[in-house]
Nucleic acid binder design. Sequence first.
DNA 1: TCAAAGCAAGTGTGATCACAAATCAAAAAT
DNA 2: ATTTTTGATTTGTGATCACACTTGCTTTGA
Lengths: 244, 244
Amino acid sequence: MQKAAVEKNNEAIAAQLAPVGRETVQDRVYSELRRALIGGLFEPSQVLTIRGLADALVTSTMPVREALGRLITEKALEALPNRSVRVPPITLDRLDDLLRARILIEGEAIALAAARMGPRQIATIETILAEWDEMRALKHKKDVDREVTLNQSFHFEIYRSCGSAVLIPMIESLWLQSGPCIRVAIYAFSEAGEVDTAQYHRRIVEALATQDAQAARDALVADISRPFTFLRSKLQSAAGKDQT
Amino acid sequence: MQKAAVEKNNEAIAAQLAPVGRETVQDRVYSELRRALIGGLFEPSQVLTIRGLADALVTSTMPVREALGRLITEKALEALPNRSVRVPPITLDRLDDLLRARILIEGEAIALAAARMGPRQIATIETILAEWDEMRALKHKKDVDREVTLNQSFHFEIYRSCGSAVLIPMIESLWLQSGPCIRVAIYAFSEAGEVDTAQYHRRIVEALATQDAQAARDALVADISRPFTFLRSKLQSAAGKDQT
DNA sequence: TCAAAGCAAGTGTGATCACAAATCAAAAAT
DNA sequence: ATTTTTGATTTGTGATCACACTTGCTTTGA
């Protein structure tokens, strides 16, 4: 068989078959734990055990321990001196620290993205917003999980356009760290005020559509600051009660 | 024995004994690889194998594979689709990307530190600079390893004062990523121009001593930009030659 | 002479085991 | 009744093994 003929045949096959992918068990465990962390499924200060997670995920301990190690290095989890691992507790200082870092880095990312997003990308995030509205229309069932997912898609679709392979992993790390915190805030928003979270996102889209980097940055800061300031006041009043 | 007496006795013992610490093998492997990476002991694009490193470090494969996994998540190493791992190659885009992120984050860190560094911290970094001068005085033996270490101590002593537990790990990750790149630049500086690297650091110290955040930021930007722009022009001319 | 097939060495991944340290509960001592 | 001790269970760590996949070389075939 000639080389050319073989290659042509291979191409014909390749056109029909989708690549099967070779994700390792460790990768799946890691993704699953990330999802749980960002979604706030774990509470702050909660202790995680290797064997416990391995049982829950129906694997052996090996992939879990490596995934935990990775999450610890990106500060999504915390290694105690006892060698047990827990999700980091919330403190006022940490809250301020996280917010400042997110404003700094995500602000820069969206400013970069503002100059690079085309109509294609704008359309994508508008689709996400539309999906959001649709869900909000039938508000009887408050699907906060889905809300968290949509919020994540919206923001990262933007960040992906910033064109920085260095900033994006850092933003992911920041979301991983603030995930367990903001969950309780989103929960409270969802059932309490309902002060149109979407309006913040619309302002972001408008700014991006007009390529106004500064306006996009400001709108983003307003958006991500909200749950933090909410949590902050909540924590402060709780601390006040403890003292009395 | 009463409780109080026991505790007093324990305190007396504790005063004499230093905590022994319980570092795991994995931690040592991780630290060692970090040191090698930041110091530029590995070349960009170099492939690393688990068993090879385990032999070199005289341990089994287990601690090494977990350390490698951690370094991959902080982008200090790169996982190829073949499942082998290498230190990321240098490209022009990546160089610019890294420099921008470092200016953004380290700039913010030093601006925060400027307001928080006391005479105690200033004295510490001045000591490091003095040590540097001392080394430079007997310049016959160009100890670039020591130079890299001193540079690292100088910067991180400053960053440590910024009081952000979130920013510092990010800066460490950035150094890990740019380590393999800047090594070649420092090497070239050390043997070529000798254009008083220390002068940049003096400007930083002066700005910090007067608590001038903006000046400190500017001086830092000048300092860390130097090796990057150097590398950039070098890479560009190399690419130009390839084309001809 | 050159491409394809086959083989062998090397490599990452996951499972399992041994061991030491931590944790917790019950029993013993003060 | 409170504290200490003891012992059983749980947990993280490191070593080793089995397996599948990759890689590079040799051999085979056209």
